[in-house]
Design a protein around this nucleic acid. Structure first.
Length: 393
RNA sequence: GGAGGGGUGGGUGAGCGGCUAAUACCAGCAGACUGUAAAUCUGCCGCCUGACAGGCUACGUAGGUUCGAAUCCUACCCCCUCCA
């Protein structure tokens, strides 16, 4: 393979960067957001839709595709690109995340993870070698090492143990990976412990992967903690390789994390929110099912250039959601994905223009976080003030 | 005309002497969702006081029995089924 990543420009005042990622299924411009399509489909979207929204790369999931339809099916039908008729780049996740999110179904040891299928109860044993092999078979352009992703609440000991296991697994994936034209990314772990994060970044970069992911963040920890982890790690990752922050996809997070040097993001958030009727606008997100939209003749986002906003009123979307019409999910997903891809385009352009800092500031001052985020920030401040009041002894 | 069944909060519909402002579902209102077991989940949903809590009015209507009734009795009004 030729060079995977080339850096075009960096923002002198932040860590933000613009670059180009080149795969055998085309090039994409970074920073980029990759919508999640675990089962070989971004829900409610055709590949044609994705293309016209400006989506570059899509995500698929090893765990889900392995269980259904099964790797041999996809293999016989010509690989994942052909199977799902998406001819742009694909990134497959190893299924490591599922080890944690489906934790009650699994047993984990140094060798690998014993799963019970959530579909039919059958038992499966996934190892680093096996998931790498599966991902080679699927034929994605970028694949991920098999890792363990413990929840945010785990204590230091558990986080360290999971991190160390992930390190060994990363090495094992690296050793068996051989498919040409396919890049295997390492994943930095360490939870919210700066010390572990640095340790992990040192180890993972020593394995010399073509790209590096940051895993185990955006799992409910305070935003400030996620930011400080990124601030710690990013300078340790080689500048000439792509950096991928796993599982991040809210508008404010994307802006904040690009500023810290991230090139690639994925998240189920924009598409899932869309299906649940929560739509992004430049000032905040709205639940289009709310009564306030019943008679609203304007598009949900008057600044948006997407098919949905160019053709339909908020009142119509409101009606589609209330009546549970299938079109609701499609139109809403079109909008949210376009909102995010446009945001990434704007970010990139501002980096190239040298105006990223002002773009970031004006976006963040305009964009109102959700009640939950505001509340979480209040709680954090409250806890800190309590701690400082109670800690004189 | 005769026999039987039934009338419960916006709707459907449980409850059949105290634990019942009343199960459940729907509708309604709001919130959540970040490497997707998610077109999902959570909360509220008689009226009044901002909330805690409390007060008021409620199970067709009017009486009655009882310490206590949506639940038992009587009368009336209405609805449904069957037979003539």
């Amino acid at each position: 393979m030729n060079q995977l990543f080339s850096l075009e420009k960096t923002c002198p005042d932040t860590g933000a960067r613009a670059g180009i990622l080149t795969t055998s299924h085309g090039s994409i411009l970074t920073p980029t957001f990759m919508p999640v399509g675990s089962q070989g489909t971004v829900k409610a979207m055709t590949p044609h839709d994705l293309e016209s929204l400006g989506v570059g790369m899509v995500l698929a999931n090893t765990y889900h595709l392995y269980l259904r339809p099964g790797i041999e099916v996809i293999s016989k039908l010509g690989g994942l690109h052909k199977f799902m008729s998406w001819h742009g780049p694909i990134l497959t996740d190893s299924g490591g995340f599922q080890v944690f999110s489906l934790g009650h179904l699994s047993r984990i040891n140094d060798e690998g993870v014993l799963f019970r299928s959530h579909i039919d109860g059958s038992e499966h044993f996934l190892t680093p070698e096996y998931t790498t092999k599966i991902q080679e078979e699927l034929g994605a352009d970028i694949i991920m090492v098999f890792d363990e992703c413990p929840p945010y609440v785990e204590n230091f000991q558990n986080i360290r143990q999971a991190m160390e296991r992930s390190h060994v697994w990363a090495e094992r994936c690296r050793r068996v990976h051989s498919r040409e034209g396919q890049a295997l990314f390492g994943i930095v772990h360490g939870g919210t412990y700066a010390e572990l994060r640095r340790q992990s970044a040192t180890f993972i970069t020593s394995l010399d992967f073509p790209g590096y992911a940051i895993g185990g963040l955006s799992l409910g920890e305070p935003k400030a903690l996620m930011h400080s982890m990124l601030d710690d790690i990013m300078p340790m990752l080689p500048g000439n390789k792509p950096r991928y922050l796993m599982g991040v996809g809210s508008p404010e997070d994307l802006v904040e994390c690009v500023a810290r040097g991230v090139d690639m993001f994925d998240s189920a958030l924009p598409t899932r929110l869309a299906r649940n009727g929560a739509l992004f606008t430049s000032t905040r997100r709205y639940s289009v099912g709310n009564a306030r939209f019943k008679l609203d003749a304007m598009p949900i986002d008057t600044d948006c250039d997407c098919y949905t906003c160019r053709n339909f009123s908020a009142a119509y979307l409101h009606h589609l959601f209330k009546s549970e019409e299938l079109l609701a999910y499609h139109l809403a997903t079109v909008h949210n994905l376009r909102f995010i891809t446009r945001l990434m385009e704007q970010i990139r352009q501002s980096i190239l223009d040298g105006t990223f800092v002002s773009f970031k500031e004006s976006f963040l001052s305009r964009y109102q976080p959700t009640n939950a985020v505001v509340r979480a920030e209040q709680k954090q401040k409250w806890l800190e003030s309590r701690q400082s009041n109670n800690s004189p002894d």
